[in-house]
Amino acid sequence: MKTLLSAVLAAGLLSTMPLANAQQDAVTPAPTQPEAGAAAPAAPAGEAVAPDAAGGHGGEAEEHHTVHYPLKHPASLDWSFAGMFGHWDVAQLQRGLKVYKEVCSACHSMNLVAMRSLGALGYSEEQVKAFAAEYTVQDGPNGDGEMFERKAIPSDHFPAPYPNPEAAAAANNGAAPPDLSLIAKGRAVERGFPTFIFDIFTQYAESGPDYVHGLLTGYGQEPAADVVIQPGTYYNPYFISGPALAMPPPLSADQVTYDDGTQQTVDQYARDVSAFLMWAAEPHLVERKQTGLIVILFLAVFAGMLYIVKRRVWDGIAH
């Protein structure tokens, strides 16, 4: 009974804790934006219309009406690496690598990922070596003081498509394509209250790949009448920082050939490359969860034993 207070204290503080995750409220509460709808991530459907800039719905005129992005929440997909027993779908990662290599890598670097780590995708040492040898990298200087090109080796990182961010921006109308090494951890759509509290217990940590998948499959929709699309940008309601982005729709059906008979659709490509990018961002994810299971079980048993010891030590001592 005396523990009740501490429990309440704990509960109170605990509920403040996850607020850190909050960054931007796409599910804006009623006072500012009565018409923005889709709260549940499982229901990102079309009824979450773009906020009405005229703002007449609630009867009160919204003077400084801030539109929150993304306009639509991405769907929560089933990922093999989600949850306590998460594991990589190696075939999926291999397909994702293929999509990255044949599509994304034309513009997007992946500077932090070394090709030697591709062994985790089920490739042999020889295959990794052959994969690396398809790239050339600059090395040097040699004895004459000249930089030279050589075939990449596994210890090299993925070569970047542009020599520097300025060149990347110049080649893409001023918008440098972001590096993809950490994109699956560097983008997350806010989950909103109370979902983010449930996320602690469900171990939801896949907002990154969900976002990437949502973005890659979110093109081609009809924008609401009041949404202004800047020239040279493409409407995508799943984009996290605006109604439209500079990247044209990158994927189309049958663009990348799959050898394992997996269907060659945009949705499938997006799933595969999102999974691959999750691996690229967190290569030790599965190892982490496997270690975690042992640690959690150990601590549970240890806590149980300590509790019994504690009961015994306090036996007969009223407190």
């Binding site: 804790m17 996850p18 850190a20 995750n21 960054q23 306590m84 951890k185 996320d199 602690i200 171990q203 939801y204 940590a205 982490r288 969860k289 270690t291 975690g292 299971l293 640690v295 959690i296």
Partner: peptide, 9 residues
């Protein structure tokens, strides 16, 4: 081990 980035940004 399971949600290491939950409290981060």
């Amino acid at each position: 081990f399971y949600i290491p980035n939950f409290l981060g940004h």
